[in-house]
Design a protein around this nucleic acid. Structure first.
Length: 426
RNA sequence: GUGAGCGUGGCCUAGCGGUAAGGCGCCUGUCUGUGGCACAGGAGACCGAGGGUUCGAAUCCCUUCGCUCACCCCA
C-alpha cells in the first residue's frame, strides 16, 4: 500500500458513525439546555496564542505543537487546545460587551504531536464549553453540571468526578515554596522524574505513581494545597462543593489532581470512567481567571472543560451502550431489473423512491436476477422492486417484502407510498 | 523522547528453511424472472521494506519503516 494515514490519526468509518452521532447529538442537546451557543474557531492560529495562553513551559507547547511557518513566514500552530482560541475570539469580537458570562460550546479537532496509544491521538476531537466573564463558583458548578449530565446522558456507568483547587496567583506561589521546602532535603530519595518536576512543575510531584523510590511516602507527608488556600480561594472552593452537593452530583476531592496547562486557577476537575487503562480521563477542565489578561485583555474570569470524543466513543462501545435507532446500512428498497428496457425504468423508479424520502439503491442492471437479489439481501433491504419485460409493459413492479417473502404487483407510481406505509410500521 | 510486543490477500488465522494454506467477505454459477441455506468456481498476497546467511528464506541474522501497548503528558 502506497499511502497510509498519518501516525496518530484515524478514519472514522461508516460503521462507527452511529456512535459518533450519539455522542455529538447528546453534547449538542446538553449545550442547548444550558444555553451554551456554538462557536467555531480556525484550525490554526498564530503560534504565539498557544505559547502565551497554554504556557511556554508546558509539554504541550514545548514539544507537542504542530508549528510551521506559512508562505509569508508567519509562525502558525494547529489548534493544540480549545480554550485559548475561544478566549481570543472573545477579545477579538468584544464579547465583554455582551451579558456576562458569555456561554459557548465547540466541536473541533485538536492536534498534538505525541506518541499515540490507546485513547490518545495526534489528531483528536473535542467537545468543549467555556463560560467567560463571571468568577462566581456557581458558574464552576454549572460547567461541571453540564459535563456530568452529558457523560451521564451517554449512558456511561461508574463515572467518577474528581475536583481540586490549585489556588490563585496570590496563594499558590506560597504553597509551592513550602512544598519545595518540604521536598528539598529528600531530593536524592525521590525518583528522577520527581527531581525534574521539582524544578519544572512541583505540583506534579504529588501525582507521581512510582513505588520504586520514596515518592509515595513524601506525597503522604507533603503539605496540602487545601491548607494554604487564601481566603478567597478557600471560600470559592467551599461554595463550589456546596453547589455540587445540592445538585446531587457525587464528587471526590483529590489534592493531587493537577492539570498540565498553566492557565488554570482555583477549580480543576476531571471525569474518569471506571475502566482503568492509561488514558482514562474523558473530560477535564477548570477555571482560568488569568488567561484573558495573559492574552492582552482586561482581567476577566472564565471556566470551561474539554472532552475527548474518541475516548467517549471508546467507553460507549466498551460499555455496550444502546445506540438506538442510529443504525447505518438500513436500506428501504433495492430496485432490481432485467433487460435494457427494464433498466431505464428501474433507474427512474429508484430516483422516484429517493424523491419520496426513501433510502433506495439500484442494483447493477447487468447482473443476473439472482445476483441482484443477493445484493439486496446483503444490503439488508426491507423491500425489493423487480422489473422485467412484463412489468415494463404493465407499468408495474413486483414488490417483495424481504422479511416475509410476500410479493405482489404494484403500479410504479404507487410503489413509494406502499413502502412508506409499510416502513412506518403502523 | 524512552521501553516492550507485533507486522502473511479487504478482515482474521495457519505455515517457522524447500519456492504460500484456510475461514470470513466480495464476484460468478448450480436455479435463461427472484434473496437469506447448501454446493461449485473465480478474483485478490512481490509473506511491511532493504540487506545478509544458505544450493534454497514468509520462515534464521542485521537494519529500517509501520502498527500496538506502556512511560512522560494529556481529552
Amino acid at each position: 500500500m502506497q499511502f497510509r494515514l498519518p501516525r496518530g490519526t484515524q478514519d472514522i468509518l461508516p460503521e462507527d458513525q452511529p456512535y459518533w452521532q450519539l455522542v455529538t447529538s447528546t453534547a449538542q442537546e446538553m449545550a442547548r439546555r444550558f444555553a451554551y451557543d456554538r462557536i467555531d474557531t480556525p484550525v490554526f492560529e498564530q503560534a504565539g496564542l498557544f505559547e502565551r495562553g497554554v504556557g511556554e513551559g508546558t509539554d504541550i507547547v514545548e514539544k507537542e505543537t504542530y508549528t510551521f511557518p506559512d508562505r509569508s513566514n508567519e509562525m502558525m500552530t494547529l489548534r493544540a487546545e480549545g480554550t485559548a482560541p475561544v478566549c481570543r475570539a472573545y477579545l477579538e469580537h468584544g464579547m465583554s460587551n455582551m451579558p456576562q458570562p458569555v456561554r459557548m460550546h465547540y466541536f473541533c479537532p485538536i492536534f498534538r504531536y505525541e506518541r499515540p496509544q490507546a485513547g490518545r491521538f495526534r489528531q483528536h476531537n473535542q467537545f468543549g464549553v467555556e463560560a467567560i466573564g463571571d468568577g462566581d463558583p456557581s458558574v464552576d458548578a454549572e460547567v461541571i453540571d453540564l459535563g456530568w449530565r452529558f457523560t451521564e446522558a451517554l449512558g456511561l456507568k461508574g463515572l467518577t468526578l474528581v475536583i481540586n483547587s490549585i489556588g490563585d496567583p496570590e496563594c499558590r506561589p506560597k504553597y509551592l515554596e513550602t512544598l519545595k521546602a518540604a521536598y528539598k532535603p529528600y531530593l536524592e530519595k525521590v525518583c528522577p522524574d520527581c527531581r525534574m518536576r521539582f524544578e519544572r512543575n512541583p505540583l506534579r510531584m504529588l501525582d507521581c505513581k512510582r513505588t520504586d523510590f520514596a515518592c509515595q511516602e513524601h506525597i503522604a507527608a507533603a503539605p496540602q494545597m487545601a491548607d494554604y488556600l487564601c481566603d478567597g480561594c478557600a471560600d470559592h472552593f467551599a461554595k463550589l462543593q456546596g453547589y455540587l452537593t445540592s445538585l446531587g452530583i457525587p464528587f471526590q476531592v483529590n489534592s493531587s489532581l493537577v492539570r498540565g496547562l498553566d492557565y488554570y486557577t482555583r477549580t480543576v476537575f476531571e471525569i474518569q470512567p471506571p475502566e482503568e487503562g492509561a488514558q482514562s480521563t474523558v473530560l477535564g477542565g477548570g477555571r482560568y481567571d488569568g488567561l484573558i489578561e495573559q492574552l492582552g485583555g482586561r482581567s476577566t474570569p472564565g471556566v470551561g472543560f474539554g472532552s475527548g470524543l474518541e475516548r467517549l466513543v471508546l467507553n460507549v462501545k466498551r460499555q455496550s451502550v444502546d445506540i438506538g435507532e442510529n443504525l447505518v446500512g438500513v436500506v428501504d428498497a433495492v430496485v432490481v431489473s432485467m433487460g435494457d428496457a427494464a433498466a431505464s425504468v428501474a433507474v427512474k423508479l429508484a430516483s422516484q423512491l429517493r424523491n419520496s424520502g426513501l433510502r433506495a439503491v439500484l442494483a447493477q442492471p447487468g447482473r443476473s436476477l439472482r445476483g441482484q437479489m443477493r445484493h439486496a439481501t446483503a444490503l439488508g433491504a426491507r423491500y425489493t422492486l423487480v422489473i422485467g419485460d412484463t412489468e415494463v409493459e404493465a407499468g408495474t413492479a413486483q414488490l417483495k417484502d424481504m422479511a416475509t417473502g410476500d410479493q405482489r404487483q404494484v403500479p410504479l407510481e404507487e410503489a413509494a407510498s406502499v413502502i412508506c406505509k409499510g416502513s412506518d410500521g403502523i
